[in-house]
Amino acid sequence: MISTYLIHIAIIIVIFAILAASLNLSLGYTGMINLGHIAFYGIGAYSSAILTIRHDFAFIPAIICGGLIASVFGWFLTVITSRLKGDYFALGTLGFAFVAYAVFLNWTSLTRGPLGIPGIPRPEIFGYVVRSTSDYLTFSLIVAAIVITFLWLLTRSRYGKLLEATRDDAVGLQMLGKNIFRLKYQSMMVAAFCAAIAGSLYGHYISFIDPSTFYLNDIVILLTIAIVGGLASLRGSIAAAIIIILLPEMLRFVNMPPSMIGPMRQILYALLLILILMFRPRGLFGKVDLE
């Protein structure tokens, strides 16, 4: 019993590690205060769920299509917010998450609205079905390793330095003849693609998705992980995902009515987010400040 529970927590940690690492690409490395990242996660989850259930896609094409759809929205989001800076950019992206949530909730012919989509099949890869939760943990660890290694290589590459230069000195980079806008939307698209993969992993694991998973509460969890871990640090994102997901699990062992656990969790996250902003805005391994 305990082991099933631990495996479940581990899978959620892995999913949030992917999500936070991908957010760090746009938020930390490229310096775009993106509060709407959860929307890409949702788009990925919904796309691959709908594609596998209604259109008989295999798992791998579905997850890739989900990523591509999210990327297109990432490009779109960068285009519509291109003139905004600082907190207004942040609000624009937050607005994108609200609009995405409203669409998940109201486009009932596609998403079944508040009823959610049940019966999302477990992934099948070359005839092998990842059925048990322990197998799913291995599977998501492999996916996470691929995604995070890719992000790590990307951020260490020459291209990664260009992204960081976009954050630190956009004008200087423009003088060198680089297209800032292109770097920004590329970064957002890659981040969106990875977030969508995390979303698909979530959907195919829980086998049920509904709009409430992709809303404010999870935005706060995700931001807490990214900021506690530190900007421009993938190591930080992974460490923080472990800490932040495990922390409220301790509430389960406190004698407390179950209806209180949800709000207590969120209060804990909100306090943590506020305190880290006040006392250690660079987080655990952060290299840059949040501008």
Binding site: I33, L35, G86, D87, F89, A90, L91, L94, L216, N217, I219, V220, L223, I227, P263, M264, Q266, I267, Y269, A270, L271, L273, I274, L277, M278, P281, D289, L290, E291
Partner: peptide
């Protein structure tokens, strides 16, 4: 602490979730 406006916005988001819960 001369925090940027984006930090204040995120702090506000935190306060909102805190009060709601």
């Amino acid at each position: 602490k001369k925090s940027s406006n984006a930090i204040l916005l995120i702090a506000g988001l935190g306060i909102m979730i805190l009060v709601e819960n």
